[in-house]
Design a protein around this nucleic acid. Structure first.
Lengths: 341, 341
DNA sequence: CTGTTAGCGCATTCAC
DNA sequence: GTGAATGCGCTAACAG
């Protein structure tokens, strides 16, 4: 209704309109008990009517903390960062904290830039989200707020990192296949230079060893793509027809394997069980059959990272925890390992 | 080296250390020209050495603007919001602006909550990102900062919305098929209640009409899934064997169609051209053959949204633009419509 | 050229 | 109970 270029309404406006002083208005709005009930009611009513919104910056200036956290990522697809963002929002509690999301796009210049901006905005903490589980360069030790690395660990052991436990994931996958009665298990994975590839293989071999078994053939490494999954799957099934299960290093590879199995007339899961990794819904829920997979629990990872940042903020002088904390992963069973009835 | 619980270093610290007044230090750091070169050099050196970072909040308190923008989304997968975030960062320029990302998870209570928080933080503008192109409820007209809706338009014509032009996309897809020499074209899409489904069909029919053609059979609507794509594809190819091209309403559907075509012994693209929609890399680049698709140019969409917010901020009293602005989409050609040589 | 002064919006002493 | 005064860190007028 009012077309005048109205300023944003300030506490002073509320105080004036309510006929009290600024400090009284402040007390009333912040539910301090040394203010008369009637006065408080009046102030609250006026604030409501003027739709007063306290200026978080002014507040932050006083308090020394801003209630904001920076999320610094290079995950261009948002595949990891979004669940982690959600977990962090959960951990910080309803609207207590807001998150600055910065995408460095894998460019360290840009990352440095964003880091500066975040510090300038006086974020209370920073969560660094990578896109692979290989260690990434540390931001350094001279950052005035707590930093937690999520998904990609820092390469500096003095930093705190939370990352999915890929060894446990590999173990979990193979244990599931064994529980399904499979004993002739092969492995197809992606780029062997990735820590994730090595760790998952490690876990898989440990589980097999516990059962007195070994992988059939050598593990096959190349790319994290469906194309590679198809090629490797076909090759493997021809060279080792006795195989009754394939543990794949990613859902993409698993999708490719499913295609090849179908082309070669192998029924999944009856003749061949297939398990993927990542539980990327769009891939896992749409294949035929749907894909059993290992889920990295990213939302939980985000929650953990946020909680660590929290602890570090609160216990300001307590020594900040450090090291890499592998987080539990979980198995999601679908039709590619156990037939639907 | 210094274990003392050092406060964050302030401009006053720099001034003292450099032996000048606070305001001189401020001028030196902000490259104002009314300061002696030697003084400036000294101040800069000290600031560098103390790793002084200006407090953006204090600065914002003065300036009345914060250099932050809120991105309010319900896009749980981050499929739309991440490219839009990147576009927005680009448009605002290197580190000039930081983005608060809030995920409402489709919950209007949570959205309201986040909106309050954003206003409290005095964001200079808000971009609302939806996950479908159907109109969404407006945030209302009484928000004290400019709001732009991206992807999902607002249901209030007084708001400004930028959304991908689905009609143009449908047209583009069919025109490409026609250019490939196809004339017997069918359409399989997702939930017919989606505006996207209707708009894409509209564009497709317009392009056909221009060529004096019609769709083969009725367009088939159901879900945006590979499962539906497989079922519908199989049905369609059996009922209308003469079909030489299928325009699919999403890449997921197209993937399903590719599967069915393969099962039925139809060669793609020789016997049957298939085109998808969304250009979701993970799906489009991994199918066999790779999938031609329509790309909504989301990064460009984000850039547009950010620019509109910008304009509204700068020209503060100018009337804020309104209405729905459909943005151009683009065709990405891969092997499912034109054979690789 | 430099330093002094005055706020930005708010929460917090401390007198009244 | 309430209000006047102080300062968070900084920039923009001024005056020296």
């Amino acid at each position: 209704m009012n077309d005048a270029p109205m300023r944003t309404v300030t506490l002073s406006d509320v105080a004036t309109a309510a006929g009290v002083s600024i400090s009284t208005a402040s007390k009333a709005l912040n539910a301090r008990d040394d203010v008369a009930a009637t006065t408080r009611a009046r102030v609250l009513a006026v604030a409501e009517q003027l739709s007063f919104t306290p200026n978080a910056m002014a507040r932050g200036l006083l308090a020394g903390r801003t209630g904001t956290v920076g999320l610094l990522t290079s995950d261009l697809e948002g595949r990891f960062v979004i669940p982690i963002l959600m977990g962090a929002e959960d951990a910080f509690g309803e609207g207590q904290v807001n998150v600055f999301l910065c995408d460095a796009r894998g460019d360290s210049i840009r990352e440095q830039h964003h880091l500066r901006a975040l510090l300038s905005r006086r974020v209370d903490g920073i969560i660094v989200v990578g896109r692979q589980t290989d260690p990434r360069r540390s931001l350094g030790q001279d950052i005035p707020v707590p930093v937690v690395y999520a998904y990609s660990p820092s390469d500096d052991p003095r930093d705190l990192s939370v990352t999915p436990d890929n060894v446990a994931g590999g173990r979990l996958a193979v244990e599931h296949l064994l529980a399904c009665g499979r004993t002739r298990i092969a492995h197809i994975s992606g780029d062997p230079a990735y820590a994730a590839a090595q760790d998952r293989l490690l876990g898989a071999r440990a589980a097999l060893a516990d059962a007195g078994l070994e992988l059939i053939g050598e593990p096959m490494f190349s790319e994290w793509t469906e194309h590679w999954g198809r090629d490797a799957g076909a090759l493997l099934l021809q060279r080792h027809p006795e195989i009754d299960a394939i543990f794949c290093g990613s859902d993409q590879i698993a999708r490719g394997v499913l295609d090849s199995a179908r082309d070669l007339g192998r029924r999944v899961p009856e003749d061949l069980a297939v398990i993927g990794y990542d539980n990327w819904e769009i891939l896992a829920s749409n294949s035929r059959p749907e894909l059993t997979s290992i889920d990295a629990n990213l939302q939980q990872l985000g929650r953990q990272a946020a909680q660590r940042v929290f602890e570090a903020i609160d216990g300001s002088d307590a020594r900040f925890a450090s090291g890499v904390r592998p987080q539990p992963v979980r198995l999601v069973i679908r039709g590619s390992t156990i037939a639907r009835r």
